[in-house]
């Protein structure tokens, strides 16, 4: 993996190396291109554009394990780092327990905010396997949702926490 901070330009595009959803990848990105645009151009459509200004959280990905707003980052800033998108977390055939918990708790309505919210929940549960309700609400605070009132989403995160704790006692 290339050293962070060293970037190479080829034909006006910047060549970056990163770990994307667990795989080492090399991408050519525009100098002003956001990480969100670059990911979506790569076919990873799970991160959504809701405001393009860092206010809604629909584009949340995990950057080195921490929630990050892909619309505010330059793609080049992902050079040398680890990016996890919703596609890297699980798929319908093998969903991650957090994804399954969102489905089981009835927390998915239109679903536009859900990939970002699931990843915010992942970052929380990685750090705190047994969060109380205020901790869950703080962790989801950057992910706006207009459909659900957050009731079932908070339930979903706590359900996922219980299930994950059960798996690794």
């Amino acid at each position: 993996m290339a050293k962070r901070g060293i970037l190479e330009a080829v034909d006006g595009m910047i060549r970056i190396e990163l770990r994307l959803n667990g795989e080492r990848r090399e991408l050519r990105v525009g100098a002003a291109e956001s990480l969100l645009e670059a990911l979506r151009r790569e076919g990873l459509k799970g991160a959504k554009k809701g405001c393009d200004s860092g206010e809604c959280g629909s584009c949340t990905v995990l950057l080195d394990g921490k929630p990050a707003l892909a619309c505010l980052l330059f793609a080049a800033q992902a050079h040398g780092r680890e990016v996890l998108t919703i596609e890297g977390l699980g798929a319908p055939a093998r969903p991650h327990p957090i994804q399954k918990a969102f489905v089981d708790a009835g927390a998915v309505q239109c679903g536009y905010c859900i990939p970002g919210m699931v990843l915010a929940a992942k970052a929380l549960l990685d750090e705190n396997p047994d969060p109380d309700e205020p901790a869950v609400r703080r962790a989801l605070d950057g992910n706006l949702c207009r459909c659900t009132g957050y009731v079932k989403q908070v339930e979903a995160v706590r359900l996922a926490a219980r299930r994950l704790r059960g798996k690794r006692p």
């Binding site: 596609e87 994804q99 969102f102 998915v108 679903g111």
Partner: peptide, 8 residues
């Protein structure tokens, strides 16, 4: 729901 939660 599952496809939405998985981003597909």
């Amino acid at each position: 729901a599952l496809a939405l939660a998985c981003g597909t």
